[in-house]
Amino acid sequence: MKVRVDPEKCQGHNRCYSLAPELFVIDDYGYASASGEGVVPPELEDKARLAAANCPEYAVIIEDEV
């Protein structure tokens, strides 16, 4: 599983970072992006889904590995 943040949609709510700090990084202005390459370890897949399901801007996107 991979996760990414659409920078056009992110408004810096930080809901993803608050719920899954392992998976996201925050810039100096509070906007989020995926940590590293966005690869989600199996044990954090639920957290990735939680982050996506809590983003009011629909900016957190889950991409399952092909």
Partner: peptide, 23 residues
């Protein structure tokens, strides 16, 4: 609750700038 896209801090460009402090 897992699915919770609440808008207590607003949504869009006027998202509460102090939401991280409040949280």
């Amino acid at each position: 609750r897992a699915h919770n896209r609440h808008v207590a801090f607003g949504i869009g460009i006027h998202r509460c700038a102090g939401s991280n402090l409040a949280r």
